[in-house]
């Protein structure tokens, strides 16, 4: 972005291409992959990034800035639609099926956070929150009581949330 701001067309086009991929994932997960307006929103946001690039402060990280622009465009889109469009149930599979770079990065971060927890806690979190076992199933699997599982999951989530906050702040 810095070189783009300085007028380096090559770097700038590289950045926009990369952003278009992220944006497609971002909007895709919220509107349903393959939504008709998806590409419009991506282009709209790219254009916004271009037109509003002077409001990017080089001292700040680039991603939050671009993310806020994308969010603004998305809210704008919802407002124009009048109400949040419902995703038909048959298409819901597509929502979860989308794999993309951004999601990969999120998953990697999650793995890092989980591995920082005690082994049993992270296994429980994986079972309950990612694999989708019920508390009872997780309890049976680990040989702990249900309430102990609940407490452990809760503590694990709290530790992770705190770690994310510390890393951000």
């Amino acid at each position: 972005m810095l070189r783009g701001l300085a007028g380096d067309a090559g770097a700038y086009s590289q950045l926009l291409t990369l952003m278009s991929r992220y944006l497609r994932g971002y909007f895709g997960r919220r509107l349903g992959a393959g939504a008709a307006e998806l590409e419009d929103l991506v282009q709209d946001t790219l254009l916004t990034i271009h037109l509003k690039r002077e409001t990017y402060d080089p001292a700040q990280p680039f991603t939050p800035w671009a993310y806020m622009l994308a969010r603004y465009k998305l809210l704008d889109h919802y407002r124009r639609e009048g109400a949040r469009t419902m995703v038909p149930l048959e298409d819901a599979g597509a929502l979860f099926a989308t794999e993309n770079a951004e999601e990969g990065a999120v998953r990697r971060d999650l793995g890092k956070l989980l591995s920082a927890l005690p082994a049993r806690q992270s296994q429980l979190l994986r079972d309950v929150k990612i694999t989708g076992l019920s508390m009872e199933e997780a309890a049976a699997k680990s040989g702990m009581s249900v309430s102990a599982v609940k407490v452990s999951v809760h503590r694990g989530l709290k530790t992770m949330a705190k770690r994310v906050r510390d890393a951000d702040g």
């Binding site: 090559g10 086009s13 790219l46 271009h50």
Partner: peptide
């Protein structure tokens, strides 16, 4: 857009 990337 890249073509219009005059420095800011």
């Amino acid at each position: 857009l890249a073509g219009a990337a005059e420095p800011v």
